[in-house]
């Protein structure tokens, strides 16, 4: 798996304007992101408290998972996040070339979603359903809630692609750069939450 940003020469893009401290995107999206992160934090704590009560059942439930799918999805989402950071970098510098990066990050999002659905289908085939036990309930709740966030973030990436094509021959407006940063901030949160879900759900003590 390789990210185009790895090979892109850094000399072609300068740093964004100024060094003054500023809120990336809009304060509103940060309020949403911090609220979302807080809700997930409560869920993470509740998950581990339940694991303490039923360690054997949680280990057995975890054994039903296909670990490599969780690992690949983590790498895919980290790569997607890096590509989106590349989009913000180029957007701030006011240069083009963001479409390929956006398409790459969106493709990563699609791969993540498809693998997640494949994983769910595999579990359901094995007879593991949300009401099978406490672990499976948490697995479907955490990964399902996360997938909803991934879908919302993907819609944001599609919006940036559509707007980018529409405005391809115009000067990039400041409000579009702000929209890029809003979508990117949300997308990074989707990545960040999965980084925590992965060890909790897939790599617990067994």
């Amino acid at each position: 798996m390789s990210a185009p940003v790895v090979t892109r020469p850094s000399a072609t893009v300068s740093e964004g304007a100024g060094t003054a401290r500023r809120v990336p995107g809009e304060p509103g999206v940060w309020l949403l992101v911090l609220l979302d992160m807080s809700v997930f934090a409560v869920l993470f704590v509740a998950f581990l408290l339940d694991r303490r009560n039923e360690p054997e059942a949680f280990a057995a439930g975890q054994a039903d998972l296909t670990l490599v799918l969780g690992l690949v999805n983590t790498l895919v989402l980290v790569t997607s996040s890096a590509l989106v950071a590349g989009v913000v970098r180029r957007s701030r510098a006011g240069v083009g070339g963001t479409e390929r990066l956006l398409l790459g990050s969106l493709a990563c999002g699609v791969v993540f979603g498809v693998l997640k659905v494949v994983e769910w289908a595999h579990l359901l085939d094995k007879g593991v359903e949300p009401d099978t036990g406490t672990y499976s309930m948490w697995f479907f709740v955490l990964t399902g809630l996360h997938l909803v966030h991934l879908l919302i973030g993907s819609l944001g990436l599609v919006t940036l692609l559509v707007i980018g094509r529409r405005d391809a021959h115009r000067e990039v407006a400041a409000d579009r750069r702000a929209l890029v940063e809003v979508v990117a901030t949300y997308w990074h949160m989707v990545d960040l939450l999965w980084l925590v879900i992965f060890p909790l759900v897939y790599l617990g003590a067994s």
Binding site: R21, R22, V84, H188, D191, L192, V196, P199
Partner: peptide, 23 residues
Amino acid sequence: AVALAFLKAGLVGWEFMDLRRAP
């Protein structure tokens, strides 16, 4: 593994979300 995940979460925030240049 959990501690390393939060190390990564911090790195995503600091670098990708650009919090190193935020208020």
